[in-house]
Simulated assay, not measured.
Amino acid sequence: MATASTTPRQIPIVCPGHTRPLAEVSFLCPPDEPNRTLLVSACHDKQPMIRDAASGDWIGTWSGHKGAVWSTKLDPMGYLAATASGDFSVKVWDAITGKDLMTFAHKHIVKTVDFSLDSKYLASGGHEGILRVFELEKGQKAEEPGNVKEMKQAQDKVNITKCIWLDNDLLLAAASDGKIRCWNVGSESNVCTLEVEAEVRDMEVTHLTKDGESQIILTIAAGTSVSFFKLVISGEGKDKKLEGSLLHCHKMPIHFREEGGATLHPSSGKKFVAGGSDLWVRVFDFETGEELECHRGHHGPIRCLRYAPDGKTYATGSEDGTIRLWKTDPKEES
């Protein structure tokens, strides 16, 4: 097991600006700017931000929410941003100018948002236990009855903690009952349900190529474990289905009862980073769960983390209100 004394010390880039605990971080490489990577962050201070992911320099803030922001995402083109808030609303912004374009009202705290791969739809979920899908081309009218699709997760109320589009048809929703449901949005049917030990705190989808084979790996942080599922998609359109098989379930030296999480290396798939109930940022072996690295830099528990798309760096957000950018292989880049 790696310890602070055996792990080579790394000094991360510190990104100040937030004043409350972080809730989510995510990266995007805009297709029309292939040499640039953006980093967006959601925070309890109501002020979601966008930064240059290489330097950590602040680019802008989307101001307008009256409650904690739990989720911030850029659309695949990098033109739109969406935010989910404790003020019972989802907002869509112009990611370039910062203009507030749309506001979709909800009846409870909204914890997660995600754009479809074609940028036409926005999904949201939270404490209502209802997964909503808005057709963005309809603008503000997308939230009117009959225009928004609503998929209830269970007979008994559950909280949706994360949602992720697999493609333009299939949408994953993770919940407080430990279940990850896959919905075919066209048919509005639940086509697959996976289950873990506790409330899902974090969920990530990674597309890998191993030995010439394309794989979809689902990473789940829940309870005291990080689980990895292999996903297989079959069929087309409204007949599209999903199957998932458990690859690994690794017990962690931390728990994920708060806003911790895990992220899989996006190109090799050989290691993952996890953080949660303490101050340490840990790197683990994907196959064995062995701890490879252990870093300290934050002054509060780790609340969120993600690898950059090229896998050369990863970001961690903490209760201390800062984001830190770490090198994946500092020796190779020194």
Rank of each mutant, 00 (worst) to 15 (best):
E213C: 13
L171T: 05
K141N: 13
G311C: 03
F284G: 08
W93M: 07
A274C: 09
P266V: 03
V40D: 00
G126E: 01
G321C: 08
L38P: 00
E332H: 11
H298K: 06
A42N: 08
R132W: 03
E197M: 07
E290V: 15
V158P: 03
S176N: 05
C249D: 09
R282M: 15
D57L: 11
G86L: 12
K238I: 09
L194E: 00
P48Q: 06
W326T: 09
A174R: 00
S334G: 06
K238T: 10
H106T: 10
E291L: 15
Q155H: 11
L194R: 00
L170V: 08
A105F: 12
L80C: 02
K141D: 12
C182M: 04
K99F: 08
N147Y: 05
G86A: 12
S245W: 08
L208V: 08
G212H: 09
I59P: 09
I13E: 01
Y314T: 02
S119G: 13
L264C: 10
D211N: 14
L80M: 08
K238L: 08
L170G: 02
V158M: 10
G78H: 02
S176R: 02
W62G: 03
D94E: 04
V196G: 03
K73T: 10
G129A: 05
V90A: 01
T322Q: 13
D75V: 07
H44C: 12
T83R: 07
S71R: 02
E150P: 04
K157W: 14
G186T: 10
K46I: 06
E128A: 01
C249P: 02
L22Q: 01
A173E: 12
I217T: 01
S318L: 06
A123N: 06
G129F: 09
I217M: 07
E293T: 09
V25C: 11
A68R: 10
I164R: 07
S85K: 07
W165S: 05
D75C: 13
S119W: 06
G311H: 02
